[in-house]
Every structure is written in C-alpha cells, then in structure tokens.
C-alpha cells in the first residue's frame, strides 16, 4: 500500500469535513473587486499557493511525520514495539500530546490573523471529527486530546493522512491542493465563472502543486534543530544530531526542527480574512 488511494479520498472536495463552506479569502476579494475574473483568480491562486499553500503543506508534512513516528501509524507502532516491548503507554506525554500542542503552536505562530486562525481551527476540528471515523488511530485520538478546540487544519490533515496510510509528501500535496481548490470552487460559485476555465487554471498549477509539496518536505528534511531556542517540549538536549531509533527521542528531535518550517505570509490574505468577518451578507465561513 502506498497511500495513493487514501490521498485521493483525503483531497476530494466531497470529503465530508466542512471544506465546501470556506472560500479562503475569495469571497472578500470578490466583494472588494480585487478578483473579478479568471485572470485575477489565476494570480490569486498562484500567490495563495506560494504562501499559505506552502506553509500548510509543510505543517501537514510535519504532522504526518509526527503521527507516523509518535504512535498512530503502523510504522510508529512497529518502531515503538521494537524499542519497548511493554504495553503501550497511556499517559498524555507518552502519547505525544505535548508534541501535538507544540506543532499546533507552530501553526499559530505562522497565522497572524485571528480570523484565519479561527477558520483553520474550525476546518481542523471538522476534519478531525471525520477522519477519526474514517481512519481511527491513536495519533488522531492524541491530537483531539491535545487541542480540544480543534487543531489547525494542516495539522489535522497531516495526522489524518498518516492514519490513512499516506506519507508526508502526500500529506503536503493534499494540503497544497486544498489550499487552491476550495478558493477556486468558491470563485466559480460567486462569479459564475466557467468551471472548465477555472479547472484549466488548476491544471496549470499542477507543476506548482508538486513543487510546493517537494519544497515543503525539503524544508522539513533539511531543517536542523534550533540552537538558540530553549524548547518547551524537552527536545533541547537532542540538538544537532539525529537521535537513535527511540521513538520519543525521535519525535522530540523532529519537533526541534519545526522552527525552521516556512512561514510565508500573505498580507492581503490577512486583510481579506479580517474584512470578511465584517461582511453581514457573507455566504462562506472564511
């Protein structure tokens, strides 16, 4: 199994996880007149992918990797079993709860706009709800315990991807994909654009989607633990070198690299997200 089929399910706009009600800033851009047709939309989508899309892809990859090593995926369990034949630990720390909180905090730090954080948490909460019934796993349970108000969407997406059998690169690709397909669909509905024209734009973005997933994973693979940030999750003494195969250590080592993940910001998206909240006639959640 290589996770391809699971990836299709996860990225499908029909996945019942509330994504259809989010326009990713397009509704407000339409209201402000900065997106009026296919040309504007193409530039909007490309810019969104290069910023928010890359950030969510990297966070999703990190979450997928954490879920796999931490406790959720089969690889993680095998790893754990190989190191520690005893019964699985039940306490929060051993289940990776602090690590999930830390990764979610890294997502917070990359999302300055409170409106965007709210939308990301709403989508994350709904995705987690759906994923826990589709692909039940200890990692998803731990994530729900760690962030009961709902994790950021890419964090939930990465954890769901791992539970479905996807690799970090596939999680990143799903995140990049949904970062542009939702807004594209919203534009079709709001502007009455020809849906084939809009799907042509998405087809043109396909190479950029692959690149984004690649860069997102490279940012994770190339990162080294921070040397000047005391770490809240106890990873401080694993600085520099890759630890052995001990899962807790490995997870902590992973966490110490998250500081370097991309944080590409898009000021216009921030302004649009906040402006959207002031629209009394809005159709979309975000």
């Amino acid at each position: 199994m290589n996770g391809d089929a699971a990836l299709l399910l996860l990225a499908d706009s029909r996945l019942p996880a509330g994504g259809h009600a989010h326009s990713g800033g397009v509704e407000e851009a339409v209201r402000r007149g900065t997106v009026t047709g296919a040309g504007d939309l193409a530039r909007f989508l490309r810019g969104r992918l290069a910023t928010a899309g890359l950030v969510t892809a990297a966070l999703a990859a990190a979450a997928c990797e954490l879920a796999a090593v931490d406790s959720g995926g089969s690889a993680g369990r095998e790893l754990r079993a190989a190191c520690d034949p005893g019964p699985p630990p039940a306490d929060d720390a051993a289940d990776g709860v602090p690590l999930w909180r830390r990764l979610d905090a890294e997502a917070d730090a990359r999302t300055a706009s409170p409106a965007q954080r709210g939308a990301a948490r709403t989508q994350g909460r709904l995705l987690l709800r759906t994923a826990r019934r589709m692909w039940p796993s200890a990692a998803l349970d731990a994530l729900a315990r760690a962030v009961p108000e709902g994790p950021h969407h890419p964090v939930a997406l990465g954890a769901a991807a791992a539970s479905a059998g996807c690799a970090p690169r596939q999680a990143a690709l799903a995140a990049a994909y949904t970062s542009v397909t939702g807004p594209a669909t919203a534009a079709v509905r709001l502007l009455g654009l020809d849906p084939v024209t809009v799907h042509r734009l998405l087809a043109d973005l396909a190479p950029a989607l692959e690149d984004t997933a690649h860069v997102a994973c490279a940012s994770l693979d190339d990162a080294v633990p921070a040397d000047d940030e005391p770490d809240g999750c106890g990873a401080g003494h694993h600085q520099g070198r890759q630890p052995g195969r001990h899962p807790e250590r490995q997870a902590a080592w992973q966490a110490a690299r998250w500081h370097a993940l991309p944080g590409h910001s898009a000021p216009a998206l921030d302004l649009l997200a906040e402006g959207h909240l002031t629209n009394p006639m809005k159709l979309f959640v975000s």
Partner: peptide, 21 residues
C-alpha cells in the same frame, strides 16, 4: 448559525460536519 458557502443542501446532506459540530 452555520454558513453553507452557497450550497445549503450540501450542508444538511452531503457534508454535515459543520452542522453536527
């Protein structure tokens, strides 16, 4: 209130996540 992104029937039939929430 739940927002439905132009598709009220989707929110009660195909993707009920926001309503359940």
């Amino acid at each position: 209130a739940v927002q439905t992104g132009c598709c009220p029937h989707t929110a009660i039939r195909d993707d009920i996540a926001a309503n359940l929430d």
